[in-house]
Amino acid sequence: MAEVRLNNLTKSYGGVEVIPPLDLTIPDKSFSVLVGPSGCGKSTLLRMVAGLEEVTSGQITIGGEDVTDADPAKRGIAMVFQSYALYPHMSVADNIGFALKLAKTPKDEIRTRVKEAAAILQLEDYLDRKPKALSGGQRQRVAIGRAIVRQPKVFLFDEPLSNLDAALRAQMRVELAELHEKLGATMIYVTHDQVEAMTMADQIVVLKKGEVQQVGAPLDLYNTPENTFVAEFIGMPKMNLLNGATAARFGGDKVGVRPEHLEISSDNPIVSGEVVHAEYLGADTIAHVQSAEAGRVVVRLDGSHPLQRGSEITLSPRPGCLRIFDANGQSLGAA
């Protein structure tokens, strides 16, 4: 059991409160992603779980054990840093086995466990190399290997893929998800990239200014956002938020509709306007429509859809796909 619980946790720097009282449960063996814009407190939260940042008040439990004031090494966690944090003077094998060496593990066992971790991460051929002789992806694997070898209860990832190029990031996303399946450990992953969150998580925690906006499965957050912040943050392109007369028609202050939930149709129109830009992505066409009453609206159409810049189109939502929000941005349900 390695459920992580944060009870009434707060963090302040001087008089500035960056994490107001926060309660959160990370289920055992889950892959939970903390996501939010820069400065929302997600990394601070992760560092508090790691023990690298002091807790101002509240409690952290891992597997039912209170670790609020415990040393990082005694929490049963391992962390993968954004910068990889590999020791540049040590070989790959020494990097991976460093924690075991400190724990005075017998040399034979260190060798065996390092080899096992290297095999999982396909690093067997690089064990004698120094980190500077590795590519970005290989370095990231070494950092993960260093975490694996300690057999922790909880893995913590602090934006581990942000230094990689787009192709490698996509590959590593898959590898991390598979690793989670293989190890069956609890993983907490911090990112500002909602695509990473959507593709890897069992549970997404959306944060804004240190406050939890919504917790749930990726598709729950996507389909039923509890507020406009989550509605806009999750999904790419982001959800269209229409207000004024269009929203009033549905009894709300704002009405949200995802780009793929709009279609060119006059059956139940909510937006009419001029196509100002179209992005042809092959499978999809992303059209930007300028409407007098609703402003800029983005719509995702079939890739083969021909659209002329300057042409007038009318868009209707698919039934049941509109989200209604009140003046405070809270969800009032679907329409």
Partner: peptide, 25 residues
Amino acid sequence: PEDLTEAARIDGAKPGQITWFVKLP
């Protein structure tokens, strides 16, 4: 980089070990 000493702390290194194994090299 602070990350290196933090990684060593998580790996279980005490202050003296961080100095000896990480900082001095």
